[in-house]
Design a protein around this nucleic acid. Sequence first.
DNA 1: CCCATATAGTTGAATCGTCAACACTTGCTA
DNA 2: TAGCAAGTGTTGACGATTCAACTATATGGG
Lengths: 186, 186
Amino acid sequence: MRETSRSQESGPAVMPAGAPAAEDVPGTTEDVPGTAGEVRWLTAEQQASWRAYLLGVARLTEALSRELDDDAGLSLSEYEILVRLSEAPERTARMSELAHSLVHSRSRLTHTVSRLEKRGLVERRSCAADGRGVNAAMTDEGYALLVAAAPGHVRAVREHLVDVLTPEQLAALGEAMALVAPDVTG
Amino acid sequence: MRETSRSQESGPAVMPAGAPAAEDVPGTTEDVPGTAGEVRWLTAEQQASWRAYLLGVARLTEALSRELDDDAGLSLSEYEILVRLSEAPERTARMSELAHSLVHSRSRLTHTVSRLEKRGLVERRSCAADGRGVNAAMTDEGYALLVAAAPGHVRAVREHLVDVLTPEQLAALGEAMALVAPDVTG
DNA sequence: CCCATATAGTTGAATCGTCAACACTTGCTA
DNA sequence: TAGCAAGTGTTGACGATTCAACTATATGGG
């Protein structure tokens, strides 16, 4: 499966082959932030980490969504919406709050909630406090489905991520990801 | 960080509210691997890491795909395909090889490559060695577009990930992700 | 050689997500 | 209090992905 030529397990790359490999000394080609200077390509180490990230995310997502769909007929985003609602007071939350916290577009959330509503897992209610707002409320059926789906999902998260890392590695992963892309929509 | 109201910045959760919070001592509820025993919920720390991961991935993906689309009219997957081809001998690779290394379904790859082909960025060629196979080959136009797109993309990867982490954090992230979901399709 | 099975790739329908346009409410300010 | 920008949410069209067939070639065993 793997010949002398190319590595088979590397994830997607960042730059085209032929780009000058970056020096390990940062800032040698571009020193003035905000200026359209030379490109600071990734070093070999950085690129290796980045590819591992991309490959890992793809595989993990693949594994988790397959499990969830097979096991409960839910997509990852539907599951996440249900979890958020299960935690909210009255199991109810504003559409915009859901959209923001899940990093979904408002449109996407509208469509997904519509599908969930059609399945009887969620209800829409008008928002007393704000005439523009709409509340999504989880039904008992929705909660029951979430309760049924959760064990398998948690098992999968453990199997593919939590239990394959040391506690230190998992904590480091969380800390690193917490520094990432701090709110794009701001 | 978790008050009566609700934290606004936490990512999607794993389990429904109301699930018994896991002890910090693992294995107390389920000791026999392979047995369908009690659910081992995530501890508070594990859940925090997991949520940070989900939120970070969502935001990073959002930022990178917006940049790439605005800047070059490419999706993340299209970009990744082009990078793979740019690295391959003769800028040519088997469809199945691409699909596997990018963790895409064969069907998805077929559709995406068809779109790229329609735009003149990629060509299909029959595979001499294997009558079933199809090679995807990058055109000069495809390479030119990749070269044009790469600087902005690399800048975004740096801005949102590489440059916000210490080298140690980035390396740790890569090492952790490399342990994840080792090939689902196997 | 022939059949069975596995691998490679495509197709079309259904589902899901994005994008731009729209309608409505709120809140500011003049 | 009229007017207008910003915030909320929906809609429909279009694009992208998934899923279940389906074709065709390769491989291995009688």
